[in-house]
Amino acid sequence: MSKVPAELRYTKSHEWLRALPDGSVEIGITDHAQAALGDLVFVEVPAAGRTLATGDACAVVESVKAASDVYSPLGGEVLAGNEALATQPELVNQDPYGKGWILRLKPSGNAASADLQDATAYAAEVAGD
């Protein structure tokens, strides 16, 4: 059973999104997603300053058997990519909602307009997979 923290919001494509106190958001992939991919061997994070539209492919997570794009659940400007993942991609496997975050974003429009679901809805979806 994968972990689905209650305080986060989720996309159908298995990204999570955390609102930070300063109005920015943190984005990563869910526990379910990392388990499905298996041991990650490489994560490509976006450079700070890049502008993303909602749904843009903004990062790549790669295991030996798969490579997946990470899609930005919101539009905005990238504040930072998680540089630690360059040498420690396993952080995404070990701590997907913490040290394994992928990028921080300053949302440009109304964050509520993105197609996001709460933990209960996402957990139900994952259970039905």
Binding site: F42, E62, S63, V64, K65, A66, A67, D69
Partner: peptide
């Protein structure tokens, strides 16, 4: 590095 290749990454 097979994740670059067509049998995994298909159209990408």
């Amino acid at each position: 590095l097979q994740a670059r290749e067509q049998h995994i990454r298909r159209g990408k």
